[in-house]
Amino acid sequence: MTVQTFLERANALRDQGPMALMSPDLPVLKAEAKAATTQLKADRAARAAAGKKPIACVPEGESIGIMDMLDGLAALPAADQKRPLKDGYARVLAKRFPC
């Protein structure tokens, strides 16, 4: 899923208010976000194993909340919003937690 698609679907859920909890889109978006996070963790481990600098340096015990993630994704340039969610999320993390 691209960043743009993720944002469109997330914004549609946000517009539903509390009814979003009943939407079949909610578990889909949660799974996409979790998959992107898992992929980024694997990428980080692979970069470390290869002796490469990490994309972002998230302090131990820190994380980014869903609203901050959505705001960060929405702030990305249009070209970046056409990228896969994992890549957009990596850019948000790199901006928030630079090395």
Rank of each mutant, 00 (worst) to 15 (best):
P98H: 01
G51H: 10
V3H: 08
D80P: 06
G65T: 05
D68N: 05
K30A: 14
V92R: 01
Q4I: 02
M22W: 03
K53P: 08
R96F: 07
A35R: 15
K41V: 06
R44V: 14
L7T: 02
D80A: 08
D25Y: 01
P24T: 09
K41F: 05
A79M: 11
R14K: 09
D68K: 02
G72A: 01
R9T: 05
P98E: 01
L26V: 06
D71N: 07
G65E: 05
G65Q: 07
A48T: 06
F97W: 14
G88V: 07
P27S: 13
E62H: 12
P24M: 11
G88L: 04
A49H: 13
A46K: 15
A35D: 15
D43Y: 14
A50T: 13
P18R: 00
L70F: 01
G72E: 08
G65S: 10
A35G: 14
V28E: 03
R44M: 15
G65A: 06
G72M: 02
L40I: 07
A10V: 01
N11D: 10
K52A: 11
K82E: 13
E8H: 08
D25C: 04
L70E: 04
A31N: 12
V28P: 01
R14Y: 00
M19D: 14
K34S: 12
D43Q: 15
E32T: 05
T5H: 10
K34I: 05
A36Y: 05
L70T: 03
A42C: 08
A48C: 04
P24G: 14
V28N: 00
I55R: 08
F6T: 09
A79C: 13
E62P: 02
Q81R: 14
G72K: 03
I64R: 07
A10I: 00
R44G: 13
T5Y: 01
C99P: 13
K82C: 07
C99N: 03
A48L: 12
T2Q: 09
D43R: 15
K86T: 15
S23N: 07
A50R: 13
I55F: 07
A36T: 04
P84H: 09
L26S: 06
R47A: 09
A31D: 14
K34E: 13
A36S: 12
S63Q: 12
P18E: 00
D15T: 01
A31F: 06
G17Q: 00
A79K: 15
A42S: 06
D71C: 02
A46D: 11
R83W: 06
I55D: 10
D68L: 03
T37V: 09
G17F: 00
K30E: 14
R91K: 15
G72P: 02
E8W: 03
D15Y: 00
A75K: 11
L21V: 02
K95G: 12
A20D: 12
A49W: 10
K34W: 05
A12L: 08
M67L: 10
A46R: 13
P84G: 07
A74N: 09
L76T: 00
R83F: 08
K82A: 13
L21Q: 03
K86F: 06
M19Q: 13
D15M: 02
I64H: 04
A20W: 02
R96E: 13
K86N: 08
R9K: 11
A56Q: 11
